[in-house]
Design a protein around this nucleic acid. Structure first.
Lengths: 140, 140
DNA sequence: CTAGCTGCAAATCCTTTGCAAGAAA
DNA sequence: TTTCTTGCAAAGGATTTGCAGCTAG
């Protein structure tokens, strides 16, 4: 629990209420969260301003303590950066996410570097589909 | 050139100035374009309202005549749907895009369906890096 | 004490919508 | 004619910013 203090210090950030609260909330959540949802969760215990939430998310993202992703609805979702490379299978109905642990792309990336002369720093991969539960519901 | 008329008719859409203009602009462009950029291009020849541009893009997207993508800046980019599955290697500096024609994911998708029970309808894959030109510039 | 954070209110950017007039089938 | 599409102006939602007061180091 004191861990977050250390993470912040290590990144040259002051240890403030908002940062600790938001990191706590994100750690508890299995899903990436929108700024709005984070705000709602944080609101109960201690009242943060919306702009503070955004500013905090922004600095935490800059330091790569958390990861920001923009989804198809155009909104940003935030999650703890656990530093292990991961991809998801996402249900188009209920938005459930399943972690895919295999990643076949490192090899492909190396190949592409050779062919194109790019220096490749990362990739994004998502599979979209319908999960078994939603498939069942659709049949009703 | 009369082609677009046909595409529209085939999809049950009236053949209007805005639709034909926007399709023309998108066809000429190699890159996905933002609504703003499309608006600028169209503005010269015939004056369309911004809301009309958005509405047109929206209906064309609904009919899958064009494809809408939300990039990391949170803005939507539109491109003609050429119906051939494709992925890109994108330079993080100059945003240049290079088409990747191999796709190693169909097989992986089938595997995932078996394991998870999902019905997988699609996937997204992008490689991010720096292109040779930008790498050179960075060294200066 | 001092740099860096916060709250508040207002602004900005992209996108959507209501409505009355206009164009396609 | 009838239905769909447009322009205009105004609203909407997500995110950002300026500024003065506050807080961690």
């Amino acid at each position: 629990m004191g861990e977050n203090k250390d993470i912040l210090k290590k990144n040259g950030l002051k240890s403030t209420k908002s940062r600790k609260l938001i990191l706590e909330v994100l750690e508890k959540s299995k899903e990436p969260m929108s700024a709005q949802k984070i705000f709602n969760n944080v609101r109960h215990q201690g009242e943060l301003d919306f702009s503070t939430v955004y500013r905090t998310l922004s600095t935490l993202t800059d330091k790569s303590i958390i990861i920001k992703n923009i989804e198809d609805n155009g909104k940003a979702y935030y999650q703890i950066n656990n530093h292990n490379h991961s991809h998801y299978l996402i249900c188009s109905e209920c938005k459930k996410r399943i972690l895919i642990d295999a990643c076949p792309l490192e090899e492909m990336a190396k190949n592409l570097e050779k062919i194109t002369g790019f220096h490749i720093s990362g990739h994004k991969l998502e599979f979209i589909g319908e999960c078994p539960e939603c498939l069942k519901k659709d049949k009703l």
